[in-house]
Write a protein that binds this DNA or RNA. Sequence first.
RNA 1: GCGGAGGUCGCCAAGCAUGGUCAAAGGCGUAAGACUGAGGCUCUUAUCCCGCAGGGGUUCGUGGGUUCAAAUCCCACCCUCCGCACCA
Length: 961
Amino acid sequence: MSQTTKQIEQKWQKCWEKARLFEADPDLNRQKKLVTFPFPYMNGPLHVGHAFTASRVDAYARFKRMQGFNVLWPWSWHWTGQPLLGASQRVARGDEAYIKVLRDVDGVPEEELKKFVDPFYMAQYYTSEGRSAVKSIGFSVDWRREFTTTMLAFQKFIEWQYANLKEKGYVTRGTHPVVWCPKDQSPTGDHDRQSGEGVTPEEYTLIKYRLDDGRVLPAATFRPETVYGITNMWINPDVTYVEADVNGEIWIISQQAAEKLKEQKHNVTVRCDFLGKELIGKSFTNPITNLTFPILPGWFVDPKTATGVVYSVPAHAPYDYLALRDLQKKPEVLAQFGVDPSMVLAIKPVSIIKVEGFGEYPAAEIVEKMGIADQNDSKADEATNELYKKEFHSGMLKANCGIYASRSVREAKDTLIADFKGLGAADSMYDLKEPVVCRCMTQCIVKILSDQWFLNYSDPQWKELAHQVVAQLTVYPDSAKPWFNTVIDWLREWACARTTGFGTPLPWGKGWIIETLSDSTIYMAFYTINAQITRNIIKPESLTSEVFDYIFLGKGDKTSAAKTADISTDLLDAMRSEFLYWYPFDLRNSAKELVPNHLSFCIFHHAALFPPQHWPKAIGVNGMLMVEGQGMHKSKGNFITLKSAVEKYGADATRCGLLLGAEGMDDPDWRADNINDLKFKFDSLMGFASNIIASAKKADDTPLERWLASRMQQRIKDVTFALDELKTRTALQTALFETWNDLKWYIQRKGSTEAKALGEVVKDWLKLLAPFAPFLCEELWSQTDEAGFISTAKWPIYDTGKVDVIALEQEALVTDVMADTNNILKAMKISPNRIVYYTAAHWKWQVYLKIVEKTLTGEVKINELMREFAADAELKPYMKDIAPLVPRIIKSLTKISGDRKANMAKIGVIDEKTILTDALAFLKDRFNAETAVYSESEAQRFDPKHRATMAMPYQPAIYVE
RNA sequence: GCGGAGGUCGCCAAGCAUGGUCAAAGGCGUAAGACUGAGGCUCUUAUCCCGCAGGGGUUCGUGGGUUCAAAUCCCACCCUCCGCACCA
C-alpha cells in the first residue's frame, strides 16, 4: 500500500531531525548564508500569509544549502507588546465574540482557552502550535537558536542595545501628541478604535487676539498667515464658552476646548462660563498688526473643534465669505445682538494671497463658480479644501503681509508660526479632524505625552548612515530599493518606550518598557550566539554589557569581561567567533508592509550599532497574501491557519501553491481550488517520476535524449538564476511545469521511459524542485540509486557542454512541422486520412544558408546575392527558381532571432528527411492519419498536388488529404 | 495630501531594462477525446477573430508621438491597490 502524503511528510521530518540536517555550526571551510524571517507575533496562530513569506526564505535556504553553502535559518517568537496582553484580557473579561474567534478560527480547544487568562500561557500555546506548524511545512530551521522576546537572556541583549543607542545619542526625550482614551488612560492606536481609523492629531495655530479688557481670544487656524487678512471674529452665540486661566492669561474658549487643553500641557483653571452671544459686538485687537476688529455671530462655529473661536478671512476662506454675506443680507439678525448693520455692511474682504487662476478675492470667486448658496451649503467644504490646497501650493503673500510679503505661503508658513509664537502672539493646540471612539466606547482626545523617549530617526547623521547601509544593500526586487531611501528620509522621532504591555524594561527609565517594534531591530545577531547560551546554560546576569561589547563589537578586555560575567574566556571567544562567522545576515525577507517600519528600523539600528562589515547584505520584500481575492482577516471569515492548510493540502502543495501566487511586490492570491489542484498534481508527479526511476535503465543515446538533456540545462540555468534573485515564482514555475512539460514531451516522442538518460534528467529535476517541494523530492530521491538526502544533494550546475544545439534544432523542426500541419487542418476543418511531408532540395539549403550567413554579417543586397548564386556551378541550373525564393527567405528570416540564425549557420544542412522519418510513427499517431515523407529531389514520390516544390529549409511542404 | 506598486488575450500572470524571435510563456478555467461501472483525479489536444493550405485581421488601461518596426521608448490622461507612526 502506498504511503499517504501525510505519512511521507512525517517520515522525512523525523529523518531530517534525527540527522540534525538543518543545524548549522560555523565551518571556516565553507561559505555561509544567514537567512532570516521577522519573528511572528504570538497573539494568534501562524497563518498562510506567514507561510508565504517564510516559504520564500526556506526555498532560498534550501537552494543555497544544496549549492554547498553553510546555511543558517533560525526562527523565534515575538511576545513583547500590547496585543498579547489585550487579547488575554478579553478572554479574562469573557468577551464572547473574541472567544468565539479563538475557538472557531484559531482552533483553540476549550480546555486551553480557559487558561488564556494568563497571557504567557496564551503565548506559550501559540508558540508551540506555531513551532509544530513550521516543522510540518518543512522549513529547514535550526531550532537550537530559538527564543522568545521575553526571555531574560534576550532582554539583556535589548538592554545592551539601548544602552548603546543612548550612549551614541540616538535616544532623545521630548513630548508627543497622541490620540488618547481618557478611560483606558492609554494611547488609542488604529487597532484599538471603534471608529475614526486613520485619524491623527493635527496641530492648530492659536492666534491670541485680545479683547479691550486684555482677555485673550485664541482663534484656531491651519493658516496663520491669514492673520493679515482678518476682518472680524466669529463666535457661536448659542454655545457655552468659558473664561479660564490658561498659563497665567485669561482665555475665552469653548467649554470642550478647556478640557482638551488640560491634556495638552496647558495649565487650565475655568473661572466661569457664559453664552457666546455675550461677546457679540465687542471689538478686539490683532496682535500682529495692532488693528481692531468686531466680533460677529457665526453659527457654523463648532465648539468641539479646537478652541471654538474662529477668525474671519473672507477674501480667502469660503465659509467666512459666505457667513459675512449672510449677515450682510440680514440686518435684522444683527440688530438682535445690538450690532450696527451698516458697520457690517462696510466690511470689505482683505486680499493677502496672490494665487494663479484667481483674482483679488478667491473665496468669492470660488463660491460664485460652484454656485454655493450660503454657509449651510454642503459644497462649501469642497470649496474650502480646493482653495486651501491651491493657496498653499501656489500662493504668494502680498505686500500687506509685513515682513513675509512676496514669499510663498508654503515656504513662509513655518517661520511665520515660529515668529508669532516667539512674539507671544500665538500658541498651538492639537485636535482631531474627525471623532475617534475607543473600543471601550469612550470618545478620545489628544494628549501630549511628556518625558517620552524617542529614537531620533530625524538625526541627519543617522539618516546619512542609514542611506549608506541601503547603498551597499541588495534589495529583492530591485525596484523596492528607492522605497527604503524615501522611508529613511521620511521617518521622524519614534516613541521607543511605553508604559503598558510586555517588553524589556528601559535600562534607565523607571516604569518604561521598550516598545515592540524597537526591540526587534538587530536581534538577528542574537541568533548567532543563542545556541551557545542555551547549551552552556549561561545565566542572564552573566550577559553584561561588557560581554556583549566583546562578542558583537570586539570591544574591551575579554579577560575582565569573562571574569565579571563568570564565564570562561574560551566560551566568550567561541561566541565572538560564531558571531563573526555568521554575521551579517545575508537575507531578511518579509512582506512589504514592514518596509516603512521594521525593515527600515533594522537598517537604522545596524547603521548605528555595527561597523559596515556587519551591515545587512540583502533584504527581500514580497506582497501581502490575499485569500480568494480579498485581504485575509479573522473577521472576514477567510483566515487560514498554516496548520489547517498543511493538514488539508499537504506541505508541498501549500508551499508551492503559495509561491506560484506571485513574486516581487505583487500580492499573491490563495485560491483553495488551485491549491487543491496542486495537491492532485503532486500525486500524479509522484507516480510519474517514480515510474521513470524504476524503469530508466537502458543505455540509449539518440537525438531525443540529447534534446532532453539540452532542455534540462536551460531549465537549470533559469531556475538557478531566478532563485538567486529570489524570484521564487519564476523559479518554481520553471522547475515544476516547464520542466515537467519537457519530460512529458520526451516520453511521448520516445514512447517509453526506459532510457537511462531520462533517469539522470529526472534526478536533476528533483533537485530543482527540492527547495520548493522538499518532502516529495526527498521521497522520490530515496527511490533512486543516490545516497543521502536530496536536501543536501549537490545543486546541478549549468553546463553548456551538455547543450546540443543540433538536437534542439532538430526537435524544433518536428514541433514546427506539427504546428504548420495543425494550422492547415484547422483551416480545412477536416480530419486527415493522409499527410505527406516533402523536405527541401539540397540547392535550396545552399541558398538558404548563404542568406542566413549574409543577414548575420550585415545588410543583404539581393542583386549581389543573385550574382553569387549565378557564379556557383551547382546552383546555376536553378536560377529561375532561386529568383523568387530569395526575397521570401529574407522576409522569413526577419522573424528569427539572431541567436537562432547563428546556430543555423553553425549547424549547416540538417537531414530533415531522416528526422521526419524517425518521427513518422509519432506523427501518424498524433494526427491519426497515414504519414509519409519524401525529399523534393526524389523523383519517385507521392505528390498528387505538386506540393513538393514549395518545400523550404526548416519548412517542409505539406500535403493533406 | 505625501509616498510606494500596478493596469497584458475569461481569470491569475510572464514579457517591458537591451523595440523586431510577441497573437504574446506558464497555471487556472472552458471544450473535445482517452482512462473509469460512473464520477473525481490523471493524461492528450484545442482555446482572440477569419481562412478547405501553412496566410490574413484586430489586440497588451486611454489618447497622442518617435520609428521601417512599439505590449516594450517618449508625452499627456484615466483607473486600481498598499503604507502614513507610538501600532504589530
